[in-house]
Design a protein around this nucleic acid. Structure first.
Lengths: 400, 400
DNA sequence: AGATACTTGTTGTTTAAAACAACAAATACA
DNA sequence: TGTATTTGTTGTTTTAAACAACAAGTATCT
C-alpha cells in the first residue's frame, strides 16, 4: 500500500464528496494545529457555525478528535470550544539507517508517543530491516495505551521510491535495489504501509510543523552522509513528479567539473558539497552533525576555512538555480548545510543573490530546519495520517 | 487586473461553491476539447446524467456554449448531443516583440478569429506598446461579428511579471522596467487585462492544446533571440512560485564557466545555448527559426557542427538537471532548441540520461512543441479564459 | 422488416447537507 | 447590574445533486 495519487482532474463534486472534503478540511486543520478553537475553524473554513458543529461532532464520534471547554477564555462573548486531535490515534514511523532502525509511534495530535532506536549490523538487507521493524512495531503496539487505534506505518527511505506501488527502486547507502518493501512490511504487520523518500518527508514535516509552517512556496535541502536530498512545496503541494521521483535536488548540476573521485554525477551540488570532505579535513572518521558543527565553528585552519567557503559558494550556486526555478518564499536547510550557512550567512546570501534573478530572489529567506531529530519521525507519520485525513469516515483503523 | 492567486487553503465547500466548481469543470472540459459529447462529460466528471444536463443548459443560457445534434452517430443507443464552446466569446491576445506587436482575437472554442501583426520602430516604450495594442483592440472589436462578447485581454511578456498586480518588473529585450502595464492597458481598453511571462504561457498552451496535452507532469524549454525561458506543469498545475517568477529555466547553472561576453549569469543554460552564437557561425545577422533550422540541417562545416554538438551537450545537461528535479513525463522544446534536438536526437537523449537518475529519466520523452506561431497567441488568451472558466456565472463580459 | 438490446436525454421526485434563523449560554465591560 | 458581544444549539429552509422511470433514437440479430 502506498500514498494515493492526486485526484483525477476534471472530476465533478457530488453531495457526498463535499461532505468528505469538509470532514477532511476540518480534520486537517486540527491535525496541523494540534488544538484549535471551533470558532477559528468556522472562520478559516468559511463554513457556517452549525455546519462546523456538525462536522466536528461526526469526527468526534469517529474517535478522531475531542472537544474540551477552553480553560483560558479568549475575550468577549461565549467562550469557544477547543478541538484537539486525540492521542489515541497513532501512526508508526519507521526510519531505517545504515547501522540502525528507528521506530516511533506518533499521535494524530503530533505528539511522539514512543521512539526506539535499534542498532543493527551495518548495511542490513531489506528483509532484515522488515523483520526488525515489524518486531518492534508488534512490541510497541502492545505497550500502547488501551483503546489506542493504529492508522498505519510510514517509512522514510534514503533513496528512490516508486509511489504507485511502494517499491524501493534504489537506496544506494543501504544497498537495496528493487525491493517491494511496502507490500512485505504490510504483510508482516497487518497494517497499511506507505513509503516516501526521506528528504521529501523531511520537507513535508518542515512545511507542516517546522521552519516553513504556513508557507506555500518553499524549497528544502537536507544533507547527510549519503548526500544531499531535497523537496519542493509549490502552492502548498509537494512536487512529486510523474512517478514520484521528483525532488532530487542534490543532483542538480552547478559546475562543469569532471572529477572522478565520486560515485555520483560530477559537477552536481551533491558532488561539491560533501560531508565526507569536511570530515576528512578535520581528520574525523565519523561524527554527529553536532560534532561536525562544533569543528566548523571553532576551526582556525586556513585550509579548512577555504574548503568551507568553497562549499558555501557551491551551495549558493545550487540555491540560486533553485530560486530561479521555484521563486520560493523560504529555503530551509538541514543537516550540516545548517553549519555551512551559520559559518558565513552573508557570504551564502550574497553569492546566492548574485546568481539569481533579482525579482525571484529579493524576498527569499534562508533558514535552518526546526524539527531536529524528529524530522523524519514526523515526516514519515504524515503518510498514513494523510490517508486517514483524506477519508476520515471510511478509513479502517486497527486496534492496538 | 491579473490572474487570481490560488484559492486559499483549508477552505470549506458550501452548496453554492460546489455548483460553481461543477460549472467550471464542465466549461473547462468543453474549452479544452473544443467539442465534446455530453455523455463524455458525464463519464469524465462522474456526475449524474441529469446533473450534467442541468449544468450544460445553465452554461448555454449564459451564452458560453452550444448544444448541437451529433452528425455522425457514435454507436449503439440514442446519440449523445455535441457540446461546443461558442465562437461568440473571444479574448484578445497581445504579444509584444522587439520590433512588432501582434494582437489576435481567440474564441473560447480555440479558434484564432483574427490575427494582426503591426511593425513598430525598434524597442518601443511600454506606453507606446499600450497605445498600439489598445488601438488595434478597438479596431478589431468593431470588426467582430455582431453579438460577440469579450472576456478580456491576455498579454505575453518577454520578462518577469509580478502576478499579484500585473506589473512588468523587467523585460530586458524591450528595455521595460517596472511598468504597470496591466492597469494602463485596462484603462485604455476598458477590459480586464492579465499578464503572463511568455515562456509560462507557451507552457500552458502546449500543455492544454499542444505537445503535452493530457500530460500532468511536463517541463518546457523555449528559446528565442532573447534567451531561454521555460515553464513547468506539476500534477496538472503550473508552477508559478511565491510571486509568480518561477520557471526561469534558462537561468539554471550547468557549468562553472566564468565567461564574460554575456550579460546574464555565466555558466547558465541560457549562456551556453545561444541563438546568436549559431547565427554568428553561419554569418547571419537575423534569421527566422526556419532559416536557422535549414542552416543547421544542411551545414557541412566542422566548426559549425562542433558548436551545435556543444550546445546539444549543454542542453542535455540542463535537461538532466530538470529531470532530476521534476521527474516529468515529457520535455517539450520550442524555438531553435527543436533544431538542436533534431540535429542529433540520440546524442541529446543519451547525454541527458547520463546526467540524470535512472529512475527519473527512464520514461522521459523529449519532443518538439506542436503549436508553432500560435503558441503565445493561445497561451495569452488562456489568462482571460481561465478567469471566465473559474467563475462562469458571475463573470461580466463586455459587448464587442 | 421487425423485434430487441442498448445508450442517452428528459422529467418529476427524493435526499443529503449546508445555510439560515432564532434562541440560549457564557463572557467582558460600562 | 445591565448591556453588548460572541459562540454553541436546535429546528427549519433551501439548494443542488442523485435517483427513478420513461421516452427517444441507433445498432444488431433473426
Amino acid at each position: 500500500m502506498t500514498a494515493d495519487k492526486a485526484a483525477p482532474a476534471h472530476k465533478g463534486q457530488s453531495g457526498e464528496s463535499v461532505r468528505q472534503h469538509n470532514l477532511s478540511t476540518v480534520l486537517r486543520l486540527v491535525h496541523l494545529q494540534g488544538t484549535i478553537l471551533r470558532s477559528k475553524i468556522t472562520a478559516t473554513t468559511g463554513l457556517n457555525r452549525s455546519t462546523v458543529s456538525d462536522l466536528v461532532s461526526e469526527l468526534s464520534e469517529l474517535g478522531l478528535l475531542v472537544e474540551k471547554e477552553t480553560v483560558a477564555p479568549t475575550g468577549v462573548g461565549r467562550p469557544s470550544l477547543a478541538v484537539t486531535a486525540t492521542d489515541n490515534i497513532v501512526a508508526f514511523s519507521v526510519n531505517p539507517e545504515i547501522d540502525a532502525t528507528t521506530v516511533s509511534a506518533v499521535a494524530l495530535s503530533g505528539r511522539v508517543v514512543t521512539k526506539e532506536r535499534r542498532l543493527m549490523r551495518s548495511h542490513p538487507t531489506a528483509d532484515n530491516a522488515i523483520a526488525v521493524a515489524s518486531e518492534m512495531i508488534a512490541k510497541m503496539s502492545k505497550e500502547l495505551e488501551p483503546g489506542t487505534r493504529i492508522v498505519g506505518v510510514g517509512v522514510s527511505v534514503p533513496g528512490q521510491v516508486r509511489s504507485s506501488d511502494g517499491v524501493i527502486r534504489f537506496a544506494p547507502q543501504l544497498g537495496w535495489v528493487e525491493s517491494a518493501f511496502a507490500a512485505a512490511l504490510s504483510q508482516e504487520t497487518g497494517l497499511p504501509v506507505y513509503l516516501g523518500n526521506d528528504a521529501s518527508l523531511g520537507c513535508i514535516a518542515e512545511a507542516r510543523f517546522g521552519a516553513a509552517k504556513g508557507i506555500n512556496d518553499a524549497v528544502f535541502l537536507f544533507a547527510g552522509s549519503g548526500g544531499i536530498g531535497g523537496g519542493v512545496i509549490s502552492e502548498g503541494r509537494t512536487v512529486s513528479g510523474a512517478a514520484g521521483y521528483a525532488g532530487e535536488l542534490g543532483h542538480i548540476r552547478i559546475s562543469s567539473s569532471k572529477q572522478v573521485d565520486y560515485s555520483g554525477f560530477p559537477g552536481t551540488l551533491e558532488a561539491l558539497v560533501r560531508r565526507n570532505d569536511l570530515l576528512d579535513i578535520f581528520k574525523l572518521y565519523v561524527a554527529t552533525d553536532e560534532e561536525l558543527d562544533a569543528e566548523i565553528r571553532s576551526t582556525e585552519s586556513t585550509k579548512a576555512k577555504r574548503l568551507i567557503e568553497d562549499q558555501i559558494d557551491s551551495l549558493a550556486d545550487g540555491i540560486s538555480t533553485l530560486v530561479n526555478i521555484f521563486n520560493p518564499e523560504v529555503v530551509v536547510l538541514g543537516g550540516f548545510l545548517t553549519s555551512l550557512f551559520e559559518f558565513a550567512p552573508d557570504q551564502l546570501i550574497s553569492k546566492m543573490k548574485r546568481g539569481a534573478l533579482a525579482a525571484a530572489s529579493e524576498r527569499v529567506v534562508i533558514r535552518k530546519g526546526a524539527l531536529g531529530s524528529n524530522l523524519l519521525v514526523l515526516g514519515a507519520a504524515e503518510l498514513p495520517f494523510e490517508a486517514l485525513i483524506n477519508a476520515p469516515s471510511s478509513f479502517s483503523l486497527t486496534d492496538a
